[in-house]
């Protein structure tokens, strides 16, 4: 199967788009890892580093947007090329949002005064590591055109939802038992939600990568855990 276009400059334009997406993916991976580390270890310098570097991701997204617009205008892409540039636009938008969420985690890190008081730090680290792993895999799936890997990422979303729900309930229990934890606990809950949302964006990307490779989105509904849990759910779980 010929993989190159007869007009080779077309290939180099598409490769440029891929290059920016992969670079963005790498930056998001770094930002997420650093944001979690900064929070858990109370490293404010690292948190400020994350906030400052969010702009790098935004710059790549703008480049992708410009390049894809140019390709659509000048090349009129069809079939797999059309799916590729459409996917690139959507992947870039999702990665940009993932970067924003990582930056928001670091902003919250800076307002939490006593990190030692932060409830469920280790649980957050585990949730963050799981979502970081999804992010790495889905960027690899895009780079390698690996539909199986994209599918595996897509299937992990339910597990992330369940991890988030248990973190949420644990934070709630901590705050009920010690009202001094309400302020840091509230921030930590938003951090956990941000990480879960990053997982959702990774799953969106996995869907687009499947579409790019196979020409169709995953056929069935995305596996999701219940998105609404209550303190009663936590008490019931404890009694069980």
């Amino acid at each position: 199967m010929p993989t190159q276009h007869t007009v080779r400059s077309y290939d180099s334009e598409l490769e440029k788009v891929d290059h920016h997406i992969i670079a963005m993916g790498g930056l998001v991976e770094d930002q997420l890892r650093n944001a979690i580390k900064a929070l858990v270890e109370g490293d404010n310098d690292l948190a400020r580093h994350v906030i400052e570097h969010d702009q790098d991701i935004d710059d790549h997204e703008r480049e992708v947007d410009d390049l894809v617009t140019r390709i659509i205008a000048l090349r009129q892409p069809l079939a797999e090329d059309l799916r590729r540039v459409k996917t690139a636009l959507k992947v870039a938008a999702n990665l940009e949002r993932m970067g924003d969420l990582a930056s928001n985690i670091s902003k919250r890190s800076l307002v939490i005064e006593d990190v030692a008081q932060v409830p469920q730090r280790e649980a957050l680290r585990r949730l963050g590591n799981a979502v970081h792993g999804m992010t790495v895999d889905v960027v690899d799936a895009f780079r390698d055109g690996n539909a199986d890997l994209a599918r595996r990422v897509w299937n992990q979303d339910e597990q992330i939802d369940e991890m988030y729900n248990s973190v949420f309930l644990a934070i709630l229990a901590d705050m009920i038992s010690d009202p001094k934890l309400i302020a840091p606990g509230t921030h930590i809950h938003f951090v956990a939600k941000n990480i879960e949302r990053i997982g959702d964006h990774a799953t969106n990307i996995a869907e687009m990568v499947s579409y790019m490779i196979q020409g169709q989105m995953p056929g069935e509904d995305r596996p999701k855990a219940s998105s609404v849990v209550t303190a009663e759910d936590g008490e019931a779980a404890e009694q069980a």
């Binding site: 199967m1 010929p2 993989t3 190159q4 276009h5 007869t6 007009v7 077309y10 892409p77 069809l78 079939a79 797999e80 090329d81």
Partner: peptide, 13 residues
């Protein structure tokens, strides 16, 4: 078909 894809995407020949 792969031939159709190659033709319409400009990868032919």
């Amino acid at each position: 078909e792969s031939m159709t894809r190659d033709y319409i995407t400009g990868r032919f020949g």
